[in-house]
């Protein structure tokens, strides 16, 4: 890159970085470290899940029959699709194609909304049956004294995951605004890249939640 156009291309570099490369690498490492904390944050719930499943294997087989495998499966496919569109949004940002990047971000949000709508129907159906988290649990269809604990874990895991999806929708919406304003280019697309990392992690966690909650036999 010649010196003259690096003047404008470096406008995004904050004063304490030497160059764009250092800033980009730092942002990415920072995001990965944040994802490490996310893994361990959900990790605590997975520990609770594993401990209780090891204690009560029969409960988990029974309770999983109350979860809708079809809906869970569709949601898995929806999230994988949204990961693809997110990756494509990054790719188009790298290729200076802001328009396509914008639409791919839009598609990601659309998929996320589909995911949340399906989740909403799953939740309301359970509430209808009296399957609430904790002490509000009134469902009598599962003959096990600790049935409410399974659903507490279920609601904690999927609820926390759902909150992450909502945060992701907010972040990607913000990226769409910035993309519309032409903030990103092949030289500077760091926010798209690191939000993408976040979004893929949300997908990654669902990849484990799906078989662990819905596919128990």
């Amino acid at each position: 890159m010649s010196h003259t156009d690096s003047m404008s291309a470096n406008a995004h570099v904050q004063h304490h970085f030497v160059d764009s490369e250092q800033q980009f690498d730092s942002a990415k490492l920072g995001m990965w470290l944040f994802l490490v904390t996310e893994v361990l944050f959900f990790g605590g719930l997975f520990v609770a899940y594993i401990v209780y499943r090891a204690w009560n294997p029969e409960l988990f087989t029974l309770a999983a029959t109350q979860l809708d495998t079809v809906m869970g499966g569709i949601n898995t496919l929806v999230l994988i699709g949204s990961s693809l569109t997110m990756a494509l949004a990054i790719r188009y940002a790298q290729l200076n194609d802001a328009k396509k990047s914008f639409w791919m971000l839009g598609a990601t949000i659309a998929a996320a909304l589909v995911f949340m709508v399906i989740k909403y129907f799953e939740y309301t159906h359970k509430f209808h049956l009296g399957i609430f988290p904790g002490e509000a649990y009134t469902f009598t269809g599962i003959d096990h004294p600790k049935a409410h604990i399974f659903f507490s874990i279920y609601y904690m895991m999927t609820g926390l995951h759902g909150i992450h999806v909502l945060i992701g929708i907010g972040l990607i919406g913000w990226l769409m605004v910035k993309t519309k304003r032409g903030a990103f280019s092949a030289e500077y697309y760091t926010p798209v890249e690191i939000t993408g990392l976040y979004w893929h992690l949300v997908d990654l966690i669902w990849i484990f939640l799906f078989p662990l909650l819905y596919l128990i036999d």
Partner: peptide
């Protein structure tokens, strides 16, 4: 996550 579970234990009685 521990404290969140504790808060949920107190508010909802999740029983973990």
């Amino acid at each position: 996550i521990t404290l969140l579970l504790l808060i949920m234990e107190r508010t909802l009685g999740i029983g973990i």
